[in-house]
């Protein structure tokens, strides 16, 4: 990650959550570019065409038209996106969802915090993680991000 800024994408059908997300990144002292999508279809269309792929993709699971799980499957099926770090960004942390997304190859699972300060903390943690190092030691215990 030697670029000047980090390319970040978020797919979430909830307008408020997209608002919190962009606001949080504005507050963080990290150079970034955030693009948001309101469902899975919009996200996949963007990814197909994009010349510059996001470094980090945040995926909500419960979305209309195309769910986060479907997007995750498509992304993992294509070698084009193998460099992309995928963070699941969901309201629930049901064991079933955590297990499924881990198996499908997501890098981390974030449960949406109910406090803005916490949100900022979580996002900065994810952005500053050295993923090249982390991915070499994938394990389920660290998959669900706890703060």
């Amino acid at each position: 990650m030697n670029k000047e800024y980090i390319n970040i994408a978020l797919a979430d059908d909830d307008e408020d959550d997209r608002f919190f997300f962009t606001e949080a990144f504005e507050d963080l002292k990290i150079k970034n570019r955030v693009s948001t999508f309101k469902d899975g279809i919009e996200l996949m269309e963007f990814l197909e065409k994009a010349s510059l792929l996001p470094d980090l993709l945040f995926l909500d699971l419960n979305m209309p038209k195309k769910s986060g799980i479907e997007c995750l499957k498509e992304i993992k099926a294509s070698s084009k996106f193998k460099e992309m770090i995928i963070a699941i960004y969901s309201t629930s942390s049901s064991e079933e969802d955590v297990e499924n997304t881990f198996v499908l190859g997501a890098n981390i699972y974030i449960k949406k915090p109910n406090d803005f300060e916490k949100l900022k903390k979580v996002l900065s943690e994810v952005v500053t993680t050295n993923w090249q190092y982390e991915t070499s030691g994938l394990n389920k215990e660290n998959f669900l991000l706890r703060l």
Partner: peptide
């Protein structure tokens, strides 16, 4: 209960934290 009830609540809490800040 886990999804739909928690979501609005989480937002209320997050907005409160915004107001507080």
């Amino acid at each position: 209960a886990s999804h739909d009830l928690q979501e609005p609540l989480r937002k209320i809490q997050t907005f409160i934290s915004r107001i507080e800040a």
